[in-house]
Computed example of a mutant assay.
Amino acid sequence: MAVAKDMRLRRWVSYAACTWAVLFAAPHVWWALGIPAGFPGGEASYHRFMGSTWRYVYDLVVVALGGVGVVVALTLRAPGGAGRWRGARGAAVAASVALTLRGVAGAIVDGASDPVWWPTFLLGGILYGSLAWLARAPRSNVTARVPSATREIR
């Protein structure tokens, strides 16, 4: 019963992380296409930043990483998912660390003046960290690893 409940939780966290990755990548798609809607700092900031090639490339990289995030989340959804792609759990941990650090840094620097982006980063970090935690290998009983000869010493 507990295993089924754990799997259901893992599935829902996986779908939430997948949804987060798609929603996070979406504005980068329209910013790369030249639409300034929702850009931090408004339209003037958008035109200043998007005037450089690096910002366009940055948006494309974020969209690609969003795709990787979807693949990681869906790979870790089922039991044995980390076994299908060995790096999936490591990618989830790396995403969790990077997103959480960015979220915490944004909270410290921007605080209440940015009610959208730092919480978004922090939520992504929490989701991918939770997914990595839920996808860990099940631990066997400690006594099962002890050779039988030493277990029966009286």
Rank of each mutant, 00 (worst) to 15 (best):
D59C: 12
D59R: 01
L60W: 03
L60A: 07
L60R: 09
V61Y: 08
V61S: 05
V61M: 10
V61N: 01
A64L: 13
A64E: 14
L65D: 13
G66T: 00
G66K: 01
G66V: 06
G66I: 06
G67Q: 06
G67F: 00
V68I: 12
G69C: 06
G69E: 02
G69I: 03
G69R: 02
G69Y: 02
V71W: 10
A73R: 03
A73T: 01
T75Q: 11
T75W: 08
R77D: 13
A78C: 14
P79F: 00
P79S: 03
P79W: 01
P79M: 04
G80E: 04
G80M: 03
G80D: 10
G81V: 04
G81C: 05
A82T: 09
G83S: 10
R84V: 09
W85L: 15
G87L: 12
G87H: 07
G87W: 15
A88P: 13
R89F: 00
R89V: 03
G90N: 09
A91D: 03
A91N: 03
A91T: 04
A91L: 11
A92W: 10
V93M: 04
A94V: 11
A94P: 07
A94R: 03
A95R: 01
A95L: 15
S96K: 01
V97G: 06
V97F: 09
A98F: 14
T100S: 14
L101W: 08
L101H: 04
R102D: 09
R102A: 15
G103Y: 05
V104Y: 00
A105N: 11
G106I: 08
A107F: 08
V109R: 07
V109I: 15
V109M: 01
D110C: 08
G111I: 04
G111D: 03
G111L: 04
A112M: 12
S113K: 09
S113D: 15
S113P: 02
S113V: 02
D114K: 02
D114G: 01
V116K: 12
W117R: 09
W117M: 15
W118S: 03
P119L: 07
T120I: 00
L122R: 01
L122A: 08
L123M: 08
G124E: 07
G124H: 03
G124T: 00
G124V: 08
G125V: 03
I126R: 03
I126N: 02
I126Y: 11
Y128M: 11
Y128Q: 04
G129V: 07
S130H: 01
L131R: 06
L131Y: 02
L131A: 06
L131H: 03
L131Q: 01
A132R: 05
A132G: 00
A132N: 04
W133K: 05
W133Q: 07
L134Q: 08
L134R: 13
A135R: 08
A135T: 07
R136S: 12
R136C: 09
A137W: 05
A137Q: 06
R139Y: 07
S140Q: 14
S140M: 13
S140K: 10
N141Y: 12
N141R: 09
V142A: 15
T143I: 14
T143L: 14
T143W: 11
T143R: 12
A144D: 12
R145Y: 13
V146K: 11
V146D: 00
P147R: 00
S148I: 12
S148A: 14
A149K: 15
A149D: 15
R151N: 06
E152W: 07
E152F: 11
E152Y: 13
I153Y: 11
I153P: 05
I153Q: 12
I153V: 11
R154Q: 13
R154A: 12
